[in-house]
């Protein structure tokens, strides 16, 4: 019974190995980036990057006439970079708040993508279903390699530049006063976010990559009191959601991306409940202590 549930999937071909590898890579890179976005209050950017991949892909097809995966990836990545630039522009010259600027820019570009798709690019035959929901088991080798390179790069950069990243996220003004390249750090974050989103959504889809970025960070923020811990907890949450989600999708024979996001959301709910209970218990204990000390003898 246990063997069938937990071990057997690993023994039938390489698809379980491949699925867990792909979703773990997505989980690690998205959780790390998500932590920095969460702390910068820019979680909505994940949504933006996931959506502008569509106009990026369509534009790449219209410009080159090619429908090869590398062309599409490049188009989507460039679209992400253009988006972060446009958001800055609208914030600065339109005096819009960041959330509004993000909302205006990505919905406009997404709509433009749909417009192009239904007029000039009608013969593109884009598999919208795949773009939106992804398929962990349908990830091609070159996408897997891209995902692996991106993940290793993100982990290495985070470890190497941990202190400057921490300072630039917590107190950008002080970081700038120290002469740290705050603008470059932000641009680097946007660039890796764009690449990660695009590399990930072949596996989990454009919509669900958003969950992979936001939920682990939100869960980790509930319990971590240092950035190091928050990053580790977020990665752990992502990995746990990925592996448990894979099993769930096998047992229920459902979409693996859907199962992973549902698992992640459940883990968030459990953590939220636990922190709430812990706070109440602590408060009750403190009250007891106070009462005990107020009573003489």
């Amino acid at each position: 019974m246990l063997y069938e549930l937990f071990i057997e999937p690993w023994t039938i071909g390489d698809w379980m190995w491949r699925g867990v590898l792909v979703s773990s890579l997505v989980a690690i890179s998205c959780a790390i980036l998500g932590t920095f976005l969460y702390l910068k209050r820019l979680s909505l950017l994940a949504d933006a990057m996931a959506h502008v991949a569509l106009p990026g892909i369509v534009a790449a097809y219209l410009l080159t006439g090619s429908q090869s995966t590398p062309t599409m990836l490049l188009g989507a990545i460039l679209a992400g970079l253009v988006t972060s630039g446009l958001i800055r522009f609208v914030e600065r010259y339109g005096h819009a708040r960041t959330d509004a600027a993000i909302g205006i820019v990505f919905t406009s570009l997404f709509a433009l993508g749909i417009l192009l798709l239904s007029t000039f690019a009608r013969d593109a035959h884009l598999d919208l279903n795949c773009v939106l929901y992804g398929n962990v088991l349908g990830v091609a080798d070159h996408s897997l390699i891209l995902l692996a390179v991106v993940t290793v790069a993100i982990v290495a950069l985070t470890v190497l530049f941990f202190r400057p990243l921490q300072l630039a996220t917590f107190d950008p003004a002080l970081a700038a006063a120290f002469g740290l390249p705050v603008g470059l750090i932000h641009a680097g974050l946007m660039g890796t976010l764009s690449v990660t989103t695009v590399a990930s959504f072949e596996a989990v889809g454009a919509i669900l990559v958003i969950a992979a970025i936001i939920t682990p960070a939100a869960t980790a923020h509930l319990i971590a009191k240092r950035l190091e811990t928050m990053l580790l907890v977020a990665v752990a949450h992502g990995l746990l959601s990925a592996v448990l989600g894979m099993y769930l999708s096998i047992w229920l024979e459902c979409s693996s991306a859907g199962a992973m996001v549902t698992t992640g959301a459940l883990l968030y709910a459990v953590t939220l409940g636990a922190t709430w209970a812990r706070r109440r218990w602590r408060r009750a204990q403190r009250r007891q202590r106070l009462q005990a000390s107020a009573l003489p003898g």
Binding site: R41, F170, K225, L227, T229
Partner: peptide, 9 residues
Amino acid sequence: SVDWDFPVT
């Protein structure tokens, strides 16, 4: 000017 909910000691 900073977020006092930031996870840092």
